[in-house]
Design a binder for these strands. Structure first.
Lengths: 201, 201
DNA sequence: GGCCCGGCATGACAACTGTCACGTCCTTGC
DNA sequence: GCAAGGACGTGACAGTTGTCATGCCGGGCC
């Protein structure tokens, strides 16, 4: 019997996945959490074999939770189950020690199989997404550029971003200019969008 | 036995919801689709009593699908089940004839009840969201302002938006300026974000 | 030590954006 | 018929943004 942990901030989806997986005779959902920072404790307490983790979660994202699990609960493997097939997510998830990565528009029948393969120590990765990840490459942004772009996402002016980041306006403009150049965008807003889509933020 | 139709573009979520609802003795999932424009045909063919519809879907969004259902399949009631509790979505869904509106972070146990209530002809609406909807009010944007804001979302310049909308640059600037004023934003990007969050796009 | 890279900053310039005043066409409603 | 309002346009202006050159400081690295 494979023991499962579910982590997803949407309670309805979490409950529905539990119902789906519990139908399988060899799978059993032993814990459910709605926040990333509760994953490690729950996995240890429930002695989970495989953790299904969403990426977007309050408290701690699924990738950071994967890294924490890998370090602190060695008996538990991670399978990322996410809405967004963003190249950067896959790369970072694998770097963090995830054993699998599936997007939420894969057919429901394949999920149980993915769980079993991950439990056996195999890697499960969406092949299309793997190709996209190779094509996109690693994030070209420096840490500061990433930070400034994230602040720019709210739509404020350079002055506001500068206040939030404790930088001068000129410096913010330089970082934005660099980010626009590196993403191949032509405006700040486009740079934000492209970076988001690639999973670089 | 209540006959259900599920419409959600994420196959995994769709399948999981089916598993969850099929556990209830008085509910039965009789059809599943992944596109909005397949809803009406499927509901008619399967003689569904209640349709659970996501808002974001390819082909036709869940609100338009609700309107189509209301007109063409009178025996089938609609329950919107969505990730985003955006005030504008709720308002438009009710205007389109939806009987219920729940967000995906409600507990899984409540979904079956919501379905039963909708089937009995009752309205099911998230109370918090109802309050937010009253507070936010109707969209203040004219059709053109909405269109230009949508085009602005990609992050292009005024010149690009003007080309896409077949308008002069001056006109585009005027619409953007009006939208910025009406949303209470201070930049174009912020106006886009606020309009998105309120479900006005 | 010298070199490169990143973080941080300034100043200047062209381009773009947001605002405003003003004007023309339609359509809708009284 | 005419007022009201939205769609569409022009022109002008101040303010903001994106780019570039240039500089300083610190940490790796050979």
């Amino acid at each position: 019997m494979i023991r499962l942990l579910l982590a997803d901030d949407q309670a309805l989806v979490r409950g529905a996945l539990a119902a789906l997986l519990d139908l399988e005779p060899d799978l059993s959902v032993v814990a459910q959490v709605g926040r990333g920072d509760e994953v490690v404790d729950a996995a240890r307490d429930a002695r989970a074999d495989v953790a299904l983790l969403d990426v977007e979660m309050p408290g701690m994202d699924g990738i950071a939770a994967t890294a924490a699990l890998t370090g602190q609960v060695p008996g538990c493997r991670s399978l990322i189950v996410t809405t967004f097939g963003r190249p950067g997510y896959l790369r970072r998830a694998l770097d963090a020690g995830a054993s699998g990565f599936v997007v939420k528009d894969t057919p429901a029948e394949q999920l149980a199989d993915a769980v079993r393969r991950v439990h056996q120590g195999l890697r499960v990765v969406d092949p299309e997404l793997a190709v996209a990840t190779l094509a996109v490459g690693e994030s070209p942004l420096t840490e500061r550029e990433r930070e400034v772009l994230t602040l720019a996402e709210r739509g404020g002016t350079v002055a506001q971003i500068a206040r939030d980041a404790y930088l001068s306006e000129g410096t913010v403009r330089n970082y934005l200019s660099a980010a626009i150049g590196k993403t191949g965008a032509r405006t700040r807003a486009e740079a934000v969008r492209l970076a988001r889509e690639n999973g670089w933020l």
